[in-house]
């Protein structure tokens, strides 16, 4: 059930330059899944629309959500100022999560690039024990946010753009350098990375599920702002334009034209 609620900030800290880690106490956590997102509303009424931010972690007691986000503008700058005990307005939980059942008993890549890394943490936590989890993450430099958390949930391979840690380059270079293989891919990150993964999965003939983003207004499927071109006709408008917020944000790579 989707709701807009006023929740409470449990903690907030900067874990890398301009990257913030906020825990929010909320009952929305009871139904939250990896790959879903929440809309976070700035209190400054000159900025009206909810900011879509992926869920990084669901607390074990299912009473809190963790978001890890980058300051990208006025809204996220405001969120970064929130302290323990402050209120935060959120809409959630939104979108469909990653299809974790597709990974049962398989070798899997969990691929995150930059601010696409956070949802990989909750995904790694939710994937069943039968899954061989290879977590491949790409950073700009040696600011390796969430690395320790990820290491508790799988084998982590790192790529950095400046070559300061791990493979120099991106996540695709890390796969190659480490000679990694998988049956299924789950990914979130910048569009060039997702395009490369789509191509890689098609060449290898394996399933890939990618999480997309787009400018959104409502977050619930009404405004039709955040569409992606699809191979088949979409079920809402019957025009090959699926809604990222509600039909996604996770799509099988072969279904979308990116």
């Amino acid at each position: 059930m989707k709701q807009k609620i006023t929740a409470t900030v449990l903690s907030q800290k900067e874990i890398a330059p301009k990257i913030y880690d906020m825990w929010i106490a909320t009952d929305l956590a009871t139904c939250a899944r990896a790959g879903q997102f929440i809309g976070v509303y700035p209190k400054d009424r000159s900025t009206l629309l909810p900011r879509p931010i992926s869920i990084c972690q669901v607390s074990d007691k299912k009473d809190a959500l963790r978001i890890v986000y980058r300051i990208a503008g006025q809204g996220t700058a405001e969120f970064s100022s929130y302290q323990e005990g402050d209120s935060v307005e959120i809409l959630g939980t939104l979108g469909n999560g990653f299809p974790t059942e597709a990974a049962e008993g398989k070798k899997v890549f969990l691929m995150g690039g930059g601010i696409g890394i956070p949802p990989m943490l909750e995904l790694a936590r939710e994937l069943p024990a039968s899954v061989d989890k290879q977590i491949i993450v790409g950073y700009r430099d040696n600011q390796l946010f969430l690395k320790e958390d990820l290491e508790k949930n799988g084998t982590v391979y790192i790529a950095t753009e400046d070559g300061s840690v791990g493979t120099k380059g991106n996540v695709m270079n890390a796969i190659e350098e480490n000679g990694l293989q998988a049956d299924v891919i789950f990914a979130c990150g910048p569009m060039p990375m997702l395009r490369a993964i789509k191509k890689y999965a098609e060449e290898k003939g394996i399933e890939a599920y990618i999480s997309l983003e787009e400018h959104m207004a409502c977050g619930v499927g009404a405004c039709l702002g955040c569409v992606v071109k699809t191979k088949e006709v979409d079920h809402h408008s019957h025009v090959h334009n699926a809604r990222i917020c509600t039909d996604g944000p996770v799509f099988e790579a072969k279904e979308v034209e990116i």
Binding site: L48, L49, E214, A217, G225, V227, S237, V239
Partner: peptide, 20 residues
Amino acid sequence: VPWPGNPTPRVAEVYGGMLN
């Protein structure tokens, strides 16, 4: 008949409102 609409981005926030 069905209309596919415009390319994205389709929405943007502006001061106290939005464009679509």
